[in-house]
Design a protein around this nucleic acid. Sequence first.
DNA 1: TATGGGCTTGACGCCGGCGTCAAGGTCAAG
DNA 2: CTTGACCTTGACGCCGGCGTCAAGCCCATA
Lengths: 139, 139
Amino acid sequence: MMRIGEVARRAGVTPRALRYYEEKGLLRARRDHNGYRVYEEDTVHAARNIARLLRAGLSSEDVARFGDCLRRERMDPSPDCAALLEVYTARLAMLDRRIEALTELRGRLAEEARRLRAAMAAHASDPDRSPGRREPVQA
Amino acid sequence: MMRIGEVARRAGVTPRALRYYEEKGLLRARRDHNGYRVYEEDTVHAARNIARLLRAGLSSEDVARFGDCLRRERMDPSPDCAALLEVYTARLAMLDRRIEALTELRGRLAEEARRLRAAMAAHASDPDRSPGRREPVQA
DNA sequence: TATGGGCTTGACGCCGGCGTCAAGGTCAAG
DNA sequence: CTTGACCTTGACGCCGGCGTCAAGCCCATA
């Protein structure tokens, strides 16, 4: 039984983040007589897991589907957590698409950079060109 | 000499986008007596180039550094466009970092998915568990 | 009692590249 | 003159994961 500040410190997140997680249905909290949020021990694991998954690029909607599995320190799979697999699978596909897109983009940019470099080299060695141009072409 | 609508059509962007580019210093426009924006021919190329580069993942700040080079149909390099190379290079590095991060994440997710699948398979083949050996665990 | 630290809800800010009204001016054609 | 296409500036909306006030309650301690 802890309050929000302690959970936050132990999980390495901010109280604001914890409230946000709750708002998004990732976390539940009971209330003390004075209205303060009260958390179980395993909430620390949950908060850690949530933050990890979000940093990893999952959306809060994705993470919500992990449900109680989040509360285990090491999110070991079990049959009741089958949804995890779907989420992972879908997300892997998404990542593959994003990686592919970035890679393609990288290729295009690299190509343009290559062209640019070549043209500049040609330019630099062109005798007609800029007589007093000092600076070397910087890589 | 064209007005915004024509440039937009010919460049394949919206008038709103053109105003935005101008606001960000990517484009310049003169004004007609009535306040309408008036553009040169090469603005069509510029707009096309800008849109391309933005779609490619460059920021408008990056693109701003391309300056007048944008106005050439084929953004052929020349010494006064040396900044292009810097921008490309920096951006390639960024892309590499992003791709690397995503790839690493992909690896972690794939690993977790693998563990999960394995555990579920073990569960399914558990003699206590599965009475009739039916469907294989779905991928 | 007064202080001060922790807690509450509510709500705006951010970032980027525009989309999408809103309210109104301009001008050629019918 | 009226229509209607095209133009203007201004300003809010979006999306996600919170950061960051603001205003105010709870409670232990000096």
